[in-house]
Design a protein around this nucleic acid. Sequence first.
RNA 1: CGGGGAGUAGCGCAGUUGGCUAGCGCACAUGCUUUGGGAGCAUGGGGUCCCGAGUUCGAGCCUCGGCUCCCCGACCA
Length: 417
Amino acid sequence: MYWSKYFIPTLKDVPIGAEAISHQLSLRAGLVHMLTSGVYSYLPLGLKVLKKIEDIIRDEMQEAGATELFLPVLHPIELWKKTGRDQVLDEVMIKFKDNRGREMCLGPTHEEIITDLVGSFVKSYRQLPVCLYQIQTKFRDELRTRFGIVRACEFIMKDAYSFDRDVEGLKKNYDRMYQAYKNVFKRCGLDVAIIAADSGAMGGDVSHEFLVPAAIGEDTIYHCPSCQYYEGAGETQVEGRDCPSCKKGKLEKQVAIELGHIFQLGTKYSAAQEAFFIDEDGQQKPMIMGCYGIGVSRVIAAIIETNNDKKGIIWPECVSPFDIEIIPIAGGDKSAEINELADRFYQELTAKGFDVLVDDRDETAGFKFNDADLIGIPKRLIVGKKNLANGEVEIKCRRTSEIKLVKIEQAMEALVS
RNA sequence: CGGGGAGUAGCGCAGUUGGCUAGCGCACAUGCUUUGGGAGCAUGGGGUCCCGAGUUCGAGCCUCGGCUCCCCGACCA
C-alpha cells in the first residue's frame, strides 16, 4: 500500500482533552476519530489492527469449539422484560420507539437474544452442547466515557455463549474458553492478570476477569512483584500485605484495564426464557449456560497503553497494521533511482506475502521518520541517497531502534528474517 | 448523577482594564528553492470568538440561562 493512496491522517499536536497515552496516540496515529463523546470512527489503520485482533480471536474460538454467527443489534424490549434485565440495565440501555410504536433497544449485550435463538432450535440433549459467538457492536449509554475507546458508548465486543445439558459440560466449555482467552491475549502481546471476580449484573456463580495492568484503567488490582501473583481489590482492602502466594513480596496496588470476562451463568436466562431441552431421562430441563466476553476495541487501547514510547506506538508484530514500512527519501538527481528501488522492494515483499506500506509522500526525511515512529510499524526499510552511494539500504527496528546497514542484494533476506 | 476544568480558523494556542479592521504557529493553495529527524522564502484563502438573552455608546472579554468536551468520584456485562 502506498501512503499517498491510503488514508492515514496523523496529527502533530496532542488533541485537547486526551490525557491517556493510548487515547492520544490512537488519535494522533490516525487509528480512530471521535464523532461525539464515546463514539468513534475506525480509520483504515485502526480498522486493520481491529481485524488482526479479530482474526486471532476467531482462530482461538475455533480452537475452543465455538462457531461464529451474527446477532441483531436492534432488539424488541419484550425479550428483555422476560429476564427483568430491562430494569437491571435500564441506565445503560439505549431505548426508543420505532415508527410502528414498538419499544426497541440497541443491544448492550446479547444473552437474551442468543438464549431465545438457541431455545427455539435445541430441544434434545442430543443437540447439546452448543457454543456460539459473534463479534458485534454493543451500545451502552455511559454517563461517563473514559480514555477514548477504553470506555465508549459504542464499542466492539466478541461475545460467546455455551449451552450444556449439565454442569460438567459447562465446566468443560468454561475451561476451554479460559484457555482460549489466555492464548488470545498472549498472541496480542499482552500480559494479563486473571482474577476470580463478581458476576455483577450477569448473574451466575463462577467468573473470571482478564485484566491488563497499565498506567490507566478502571479497575484496581493487587499484585506481587516477586512472584506475579494477582488478586482483585474486592473484600480485602488492606494495602501492603505480604503476598499470600510466595510469602516473600508485598502486594502493590495497580490499576488495570479489563479486557475479558467469562461467566458460568447456570440457568438464569434459560429458565426465565424457557430455553428447555428433554434430557435422556425424559425430563424437561433448562440449558446450562456460560458466557464469555472480550472487549475487542478495548484490546487496541491496552496494546497501545503497554507498547509505546515518547515518539509513538510500538506495535507487536502480530497485530501491527503493516509488517514493514518502506521510506524512500527522494532527493535531487537520485530521486528516480530511489523511488524505483523502493518500488522494487515493495513488489518483492508483497509477493512474499508481507503487508507493506510505502511512504511515497513528497515530504522531508524527518517528517516521514516522525510519522513512522508515530504509527509504529515494527520494521522499517529506508532507501536514501546517503547509503545508496555504497549500494546499501537501512533497516531499522521500531522497538529497539537498532539500525542495520545492508547491501541492497541482502536486504530482502535481512527483512524476512 | 455529584465535584472540578475547558470551548476563539482544520489542529494547537494568545487576546491586557470592555475600545480601532480578532491575532500567532502548524496545516491548506500557488510559485521557486529544498530533501537523513516534523525545510526556507514569497504570495494567498480560511472566523456563527459554542449557542441564546441581558448590561453598555461599544462585548471574544462583564451578568444570567443553556449546550458540548475533558478530568476526579459514583456506576460499570
